[in-house]
Nucleic acid binder design. Structure first.
Length: 293
DNA sequence: CCTTAATCCTGGAAGC
DNA sequence: TGCTTCCAGGATTAAG
């Protein structure tokens, strides 16, 4: 499932391959996955791509265009991959025959939006389960103000003070609290389970009972965990892949997620699986205790 | 405040 | 083999 490391893998690839390119055509194959203005212009047709941003699990692609009266516009689209979304870049056909280049434009199943670039390559947004979507904004400031303002600080940048504040005001267990994007943005089921295992914190620990030491422990493990995942191209369980179709490798390093019943890497006892606020949660009963601090 | 459940949706896996 | 059923999950919403 695309969480922060998977989305950041995508951001890095797009930054490399998309920034500076010109978008010549936009094809919307399913209108209902696009929210806000659905015109090609709002979806960056005629724009140069200026930057790619990310907050939590959401991605922003910003463009810049000049109209007839030389006025600039800087539209911006926000992409949320939901559960099964992915982006794929297909290199352009360099053959001189224009007709064959156009005929080559075939669509994989569940392709909802396609952008054609000035070098003939295409960027395609797929999402079989359609929990994700594309949101259009007149500029990135509006995106931040209207959409990203509801999210908590990004999980890669959250400070101990911010985390302490966020967790201090909820009596929910730590597991659903860390999944709550309004408290911290970017974590999903995989990385919360991995984080709590790394910290030795029981998933049912009441958030506001965590002391400063444990907040620091969470921070100390959070960034290295996410960075390691990003370095490995994220976790591929089923759908996630980079823009070139390559799967991530971090799932090979999961300590608990997907390993229920298997021996704990640290103590050899079988890992337990429970449901916490509707989410499958895997942890080690002996390594993860409720801290008294 | 909190929780649970339902909702959206599809494909893969398990079960008969 | 082929059908049905279940399950996965991010976010939101409603109900308890």
């Amino acid at each position: 499932m695309p969480e922060l490391p998977e989305v950041d893998t995508l951001r890095r690839s797009l930054r490399r391959k998309l920034v500076g390119r010109h978008i010549t055509t936009v094809i919307v194959r399913r209108r209902d996955v696009v929210h806000g203005c659905v015109t090609p212009t709002a979806l960056l047709r005629g724009c140069h791509v200026t930057r790619i941003d990310r907050h939590g699990k959401q991605l922003a692609i910003c463009g810049s265009a000049q109209d007839g009266s030389k006025r600039f516009s800087n539209p911006c689209i926000c992409i949320h991959l939901g559960m099964s979304g992915s982006m794929r870049l297909t290199p352009g056909d360099r053959s001189p025959d224009k007709a064959s280049r156009i005929r080559r434009l075939t669509f994989a199943p569940h392709t909802h939006v396609v952008w054609r670039l000035d070098d003939g390559s295409t960027l395609a947004y797929h999402d079989p389960r359609r929990f994700g979507g594309v949101w259009t904004f007149p500029n990135i400031a509006t995106l931040r103000k209207q959409r990203w303002h509801r999210l908590g600080p990004d999980a890669l940048r959250v400070t101990p003070t911010q985390l302490h504040h966020a967790l201090g005001r909820t009596s929910r267990p730590i597991k659903p609290a860390l999944l709550d994007q309004t408290l911290v943005a970017g974590l999903g089921n995989i990385y919360v389970d991995e984080l709590l295992f790394a910290c030795g914190i029981h998933p049912l620990t009441i958030s506001c009972s965590l002391g400063v030491n444990n907040i620091q422990l969470l921070i100390d493990h959070l960034r290295p965990l996410l960075r390691r995942a990003i370095r490995n191209g994220g976790s591929t369980l089923r759908d996630h892949a980079d823009v070139n179709g390559q799967a991530g490798r971090f799932q090979q390093q999961h300590q608990v997620y997907g390993h229920a019943g298997q021996p704990c890497q640290a103590c050899d006892r079988p890992l337990r699986s429970i449901i916490v606020s509707g989410r499958t949660t895997v942890y080690c009963e002996s390594c993860q205790q409720t801290p008294s601090d």
